[in-house]
């Protein structure tokens, strides 16, 4: 029994897709740092002059940083793809959760990049009427922080999929399911950004931007690395891999 399991052709690709998730976060954070969104995002209660200055003072840095972030976030699409594949492979369940995850993951990718493009629209003509810049900035941030629905659906779909995995050795550990539920709850206060211009629940506040950013970054790292670990366990020919048991 030459039990060195040969990895299937897509294995390497899946591993790269998994790591693209954490990679996306790193590139996006660097982009935001360049653009000036970090360390202090433009706030809902900033004056018109402040907002105009944010886009007008160094428009090239804003454009470049946001472009980098949008490009980097492509990794979210790759991560969503590999999560979908691993979820379809979970034995004993209907693939509905996997497909729900795939759809919502695709939507989250869009919801992450469109606001950044709108910020780039604001930075495109920094000399336009100040009110328009403020409106574009509002549009970008209110599109960015409070619509948490697709993110929540993705978290819940992943949790349901993992918890109903009936395999002898589940593809992803059950704690990942509960971590997803927790991340979903951490997104909830973001909804309140519709209602507040200042304080911890406004879009720039600790319970909106910072909590959601931390939660989402942690999520991408958890998903990326647990999926990579599950791929390695299954295909790297380790003697305990369930793939070697079958005749």
């Amino acid at each position: 029994m030459a039990d060195q399991v040969t990895p299937p052709p897509g294995y390497r690709m899946q591993e790269i897709c998994a790591l693209a998730g954490p990679g996306a976060i790193v590139v996006a954070l660097v982009g935001w740092l360049v653009a000036g969104v970090l360390p202090r995002p433009p706030a809902a209660d900033d004056s018109t002059a402040d907002i105009v200055a944010f886009y007008g003072e160094n428009p090239t840095a804003v454009r470049l940083g946001l472009a980098l972030a949008v490009l980097g976030l492509s990794g979210i699409g790759a991560l969503t793809a590999v999560i979908s594949i691993r979820m379809v492979q979970m034995p004993g369940q209907s693939p509905v959760a996997a497909f729900l995850q795939m759809i919502s993951g695709a939507v989250t990718w869009v919801m992450l990049i469109v606001p950044l493009v709108i910020m780039n629209v604001a930075a495109f003509r920094p000399d336009r009427t100040p009110e328009l810049t403020v409106t574009l900035n509002d549009l970008a941030w209110i599109l960015f922080i409070p619509p948490v629905g697709p993110f929540l659906v993705q978290n819940v779909a992943i949790a349901v999929g993992i918890l109903s995995d009936r395999g002898e050795r589940p593809i992803l550990p059950r704690w990942v399911a509960f971590a997803n539920l927790w991340v979903g709850f951490l997104f909830l206060p973001g909804l309140l950004a519709y209602f507040f211009k200042s304080g911890p629940f406004a879009w720039q506040g600790i319970f909106s931007f910072w909590l959601a950013l931390t939660a989402y970054a942690a999520w991408a790292f958890i998903m990326g690395f647990t999926i990579r670990a599950s791929l390695r366990r299954e295909y790297a020919g380790s003697p305990a891999a369930p793939a070697t048991v079958d005749a």
Partner: peptide, 8 residues
């Protein structure tokens, strides 16, 4: 989509 050829 098959996990290493074996579906439990």
């Amino acid at each position: 989509l098959r996990p290493g050829g074996a579906i439990t």
